[in-house]
Amino acid sequence: MLQGIIPMDGLDDILTKYYQTDGSIVSILQDMEGRYGYIPEEAVAWVSEKTGLSASRFYGVATFYGQFHLVKPGKNVVKVCRGTACHVKGSEKISDDIRTLLKVGVGETTPDGNFTVEHVACVGACARAPIFIVGKDVYGKITPQKAKKTLEKYMGGEGNGKG
């Protein structure tokens, strides 16, 4: 029926897992996010058709919570912690500097699809502030210089020579 570019074969087990479980919209979306890295429109349409819940209900929940992405993020998601301790230790400048380096805004992805820069409210490692995360690697007590150097590791040798 649906012949999108998204493989739907995995969605069946997500549905089975939550079938007849109350309050499963958030959980279904979380599993989708885990599988695809974002919430693909086709996937919502498919689940909506199967469950009989309107797609707008999924959309309403997905846009409410910070965890969900509606667009596919880049290969490396860079998260700058913007908690209070990180803020007083200069995380705003870290975000500014790496976004100047990568030429993107908050929530945006570089044209080559390698990096997406996000802000995160607090990861709870405040005594090691400021915190900066690339993918699953967490770096503490970071400086703008160290942050830029760290990013080069994920650039696959395509550093721009500055910074």
């Binding site: 913007r82 908690g83 409210a121 005594a127």
Partner: peptide, 11 residues
């Protein structure tokens, strides 16, 4: 634990 700057519950 949503307060930015708090990590008691996490620990």
């Amino acid at each position: 634990e949503g307060d930015p700057g708090a990590f008691m519950d996490r620990s």
